[in-house]
Design a binder for these strands. Structure first.
Lengths: 206, 206
DNA sequence: TTTGTATCAGACTGAACAGTCTGGTACAAG
DNA sequence: CTTGTACCAGACTGTTCAGTCTGATACAAA
């Protein structure tokens, strides 16, 4: 058995994630990643066969954390109440309350950085992201179906699209925060989203 | 008077906009812009003093079109009805109906491409985008205030944040479309947004 | 102890890049 | 017709980039 290089690999990924979130993928050079992680060209290209391979590993790691976060929230909600409507609302409320952490960690935006580089999309990274999105959609849309089934509604709602709207709000709020250079927009947008969904589920059409 | 070079300048901007939307700013080289626009290094650096200057001109041109689009929609809505609530709903419906055009023109995403490059944000481009966002917010939030004033509501709504949610939905839906490689998400998200806002304005709390 | 291999360090290379510079052309003013 | 200037073409330059290569070191098995 050789010595274990996973620590070095993680240090490279940490530095790369930070730099990609900060500056975008194309603007992040391998040399810079090496300096920031305190490693070397040899170490980098030992662990990653190319810069594109680094991007894939980055998305892998992030999507895994993302889905874990989703499952965690679902578990907490399932233990909280049996009312399908309250489950959805509580779920969105949990997301709302973690918005500050997410924004502080700048974690909601690696997708944006990666997706704006089409070079990467052609290399399979967008498929990885799509899988994470679908996981969110499946989980949330079934919760929404249950909730909407409990109340008479004269309005046709595409629960898949409504579920996607949570993802959309995260990513769009990140863009807004960058536009306005104010991270508080992340929480404000998730609050609005919760209020809109509450109105949808708790009110009757006038 | 010299000969008029604005046509060349526009051709450069057209090519650059297309390439930046497609590949991101950092991944778009000046050489490529020159080839795609059928011009030359001399022409490029005659009209733009640097690549960053190109980005600023790009955002200028786009933000102007964006605000014009906003005012056009507002004018159409004001002629349509006197009911503040119907005005808001009709406004969002107009946006919904132009979603396909916007997506076909890929025009909703230059902001995303520019904002993910922090190099540009430090150069004043994000301030230009912020001005466009604020124009949208001011216009829409006052419409929302009027609409909410006509109905008793027990829920505190931050109309600024709700107005921003339109921008957020545009940008987030663009990201979603890229993730799933399916442009139909743009319209679907605007439909959901309209339905959520209709529910907010037309229903009474249960 | 020897040998093999995973792990790294850092000099090096060819390509691509943003930006410069020289020269040339069209056109308007005088 | 001359002169000035806006406009543009394309060769050129110094730098930065992703990726290669040579070697060194640590450690495990034999």
């Amino acid at each position: 058995m050789p010595r274990d290089g996973t620590a070095t690999r993680e240090r490279i990924l940490d530095a790369a994630e930070r730099l990609v979130i900060e500056n975008g993928f194309a603007a992040t050079s391998v040399d810079r990643v090496i300096v920031e992680s305190g490693t070397s060209k040899g170490a980098f290209f030992h662990h990653f066969e190319s810069k594109l391979d680094l991007a894939k590993s980055l998305v892998d790691r992030y999507a895994a954390a993302d889905i874990a976060h989703l499952h965690d929230a679902v578990t907490r909600v399932q233990g909280a109440t049996d009312d399908p409507t309250q489950r959805v609302i509580e779920f969105v409320r949990i997301l709302e309350n973690t918005a500050d952490d997410l924004m502080a960690a700048q974690s909601s935006c690696l997708y944006v950085s990666i997706l704006t580089e089409r070079q990467l999309a052609r290399h399979g990274t967008s498929e990885q992201i799509a899988r994470a999105v679908v996981a969110w959609r499946r989980t949330l849309s079934s919760m929404l179906d249950e909730a909407l089934a409990t109340q008479p509604t004269n309005q046709q709602i595409d629960t898949d699209a409504l579920a996607d709207h949570v993802f959309v709000t995260f990513e769009g709020a990140f863009i807004l925060s960058r536009s306005m250079n104010d991270s508080r927009h992340m929480r404000a947008q998730l609050t609005v989203l919760r209020q809109l969904i509450e109105r949808l589920l708790l009110s009757h059409p006038g």
